[in-house]
Simulated scan of single mutants.
Amino acid sequence: MIPARVNRRHPAPRDRVKYRWRNRIEHFFNKLRNWRRVATRYDKTANSYIGFISLASALLWLPLVHVT
């Protein structure tokens, strides 16, 4: 949900935590779609497609988890 404008009389309630997590998940899927193989679905079987999505996801999350 997009936050309401400041000058609105009765702003719709929103949950900041849910909004933050939703935004992070959307950004993650956008980064995942930068992989050409995922965006164009080159794989013929569902198992190989899910396998590559898992691999790409791990490679995207690895820099976030690995802290030196």
Rank of each mutant, 00 (worst) to 15 (best):
V67H: 15
I53N: 02
I25W: 09
I2L: 09
I2W: 07
R16G: 06
V6L: 11
A56H: 01
T45N: 05
F29H: 06
P11W: 04
T45M: 04
V17L: 07
I2S: 10
V67R: 15
S54K: 14
V6Y: 10
L62Y: 11
F52V: 05
W21V: 09
W35N: 05
N47P: 06
F28I: 00
A56T: 02
A4C: 12
L62S: 07
E26G: 05
E26D: 11
P11L: 01
F29T: 01
R33K: 12
F52N: 06
P3S: 01
S54F: 05
K44S: 10
G51R: 02
R36H: 08
N34P: 02
R33V: 01
P3W: 00
W21E: 08
N23P: 03
F28S: 00
S48V: 15
A12H: 12
R36I: 04
K44D: 10
V38H: 01
T68H: 14
A4T: 07
T40I: 14
P3R: 01
S57P: 02
E26K: 12
R24Y: 10
R22T: 06
H27T: 07
I50G: 07
K44A: 11
P63Y: 05
D15Y: 01
R24V: 07
D15H: 03
D43T: 04
A39K: 03
V38Q: 00
P63F: 03
I50E: 09
A58N: 04
A12Y: 10
P13Y: 00
N30V: 06
S57I: 01
A39G: 00
S54C: 12
W61D: 11
H10D: 12
N23W: 11
W35R: 03
D15A: 02
N7G: 08
H66A: 13
A58M: 04
D43V: 04
A46Y: 11
I2Y: 09
R33P: 03
H66N: 09
R8L: 09
H10S: 09
P13W: 00
W21N: 08
D43G: 05
S54T: 13
Y42T: 12
R24L: 14
S54L: 11
D43K: 06
N34H: 10
A46M: 14
L60S: 01
R22N: 06
T45P: 02
R8H: 05
L55V: 05
D43E: 15
T40H: 14
P13L: 00
